[in-house]
Amino acid sequence: PKPVFFEMLTRCHGVAAVLIPVLAWRIKSSEVQARKRATVEALGTLAAGLAHELNNPAAAVARAAQELAPALEGLTRTAQAWGAAATGAERSVFDRLAEELDKLPPPATTDPFAQADAEEEIADWAEEAGTERPGLLGSGISDLGLELGWLLERLEGVGEPALPAALDHLAALLEIRSLAAELRAAGPRISQLVAATRDYANLDRAPEQRFAVADGIENTLVVLRSKLAGIAIVREYEPELPELTGYPSELNQVWTNLVDNAAEAMEGAGTLTLRVRAEGVCLVVEIADTGRGIPGDSLPRIFEPFYTTKDVGKGTGLGLHLSYRIVTQRHHGSITARSRPGETRMVVRLPLTTAAACAETPDEPLSDSPTTS
């Protein structure tokens, strides 16, 4: 029984001398296992986020590559037909049209209903003119924010016998340019994701280094983009922030835990506010959400190991504990939490130099209404 056990420890000091090292070893072992588990979970989050984000640009590249060969064949065929049917003056008209299309900026705003109406009107007119692919021409012109009147004005000077060949060639040209635009957009997107993942994991870099905290937060947002769908993100980064000396990959794990918790608390709808500012000898990072909040009786315990407010199977109670250790022990900073329904704020203070100290300071009171963008 518990009382007898404590009495035994009081009377028999040798028992305590044996038990205390065993308990200390078990605590250390649990913390090591927790860190390993958190690392595996972080890798899983990274892999899942990267796979989700790469899916769209990779699919766009694959689709464009698959359609490029038949599109090039169509362009060659329509070019030959247009060259045979057109006069020198008509070819000059078409060349001016193609040159103008090259210089057109993307539409500033897009009205789906107006675009659909323009596409249908152009397709109907092109079909009456005898073109083979009226739908392709209609979608290509309307995607640029143009209407039938614009096209008719530019095609003045092309005679009726050569008009079908001109429209077929124009449709093929617009298709090729659309596929090229998809490849131009998807390629850099893939490169950006790979670069963000490399920076997030800090591959091929020394563990301790000078780095910009805001960059790590941005890379974390890229990795967690799929979980942040539907959530408004507000950034309040102080300009010309000083760099920090520390362990960026470990701090990225902290940002991942905090942002992931905020996203889960908001359940796909709300506002995530990220603030970074210099405050004396410290760099202060605030991550605020408009979620359901942390219960008052749980707030003092959220950094304890194996304590979680999530449902069974959804949380291990390790994320915030490891975040606390990374901030306080590895970077000699502090991490605090303030919460109420509709607004939760996690505040991380990190010393800018090894000689500085960033102890916990009283937080500003929470506002009377949730943060909005």
Rank of each mutant, 00 (worst) to 15 (best):
K28L: 11
A114R: 14
D102Q: 06
A51G: 06
T336S: 15
A206W: 02
D289T: 03
G44I: 04
T316M: 15
R133T: 05
P305K: 10
A65M: 14
Y200L: 11
E360K: 09
R205P: 02
P351Q: 04
A262Q: 09
T45D: 14
L251N: 13
P21C: 04
Q66V: 13
V259P: 13
T256W: 08
N252Y: 13
T256Y: 03
A114I: 08
E147L: 01
D260C: 10
R345S: 11
A65K: 11
P164Y: 03
L72A: 14
K36Q: 12
A196C: 08
N56G: 05
R277G: 10
G315I: 14
V347F: 03
A38P: 01
T220S: 15
I287P: 02
P295D: 11
Q66E: 14
T131E: 06
R154A: 03
A98Q: 03
L23R: 04
H332N: 11
G138A: 06
E132N: 08
T110W: 10
A196F: 07
M8G: 01
L224P: 00
G333P: 09
R349T: 09
P362G: 04
A359D: 10
L283E: 15
A123M: 04
V284H: 00
S369R: 12
K2V: 03
L350M: 12
D124N: 05
L173C: 02
E156P: 05
T309V: 15
N219I: 06
T245H: 10
L43P: 03
T344R: 00
L97F: 05
T353L: 04
D111Q: 08
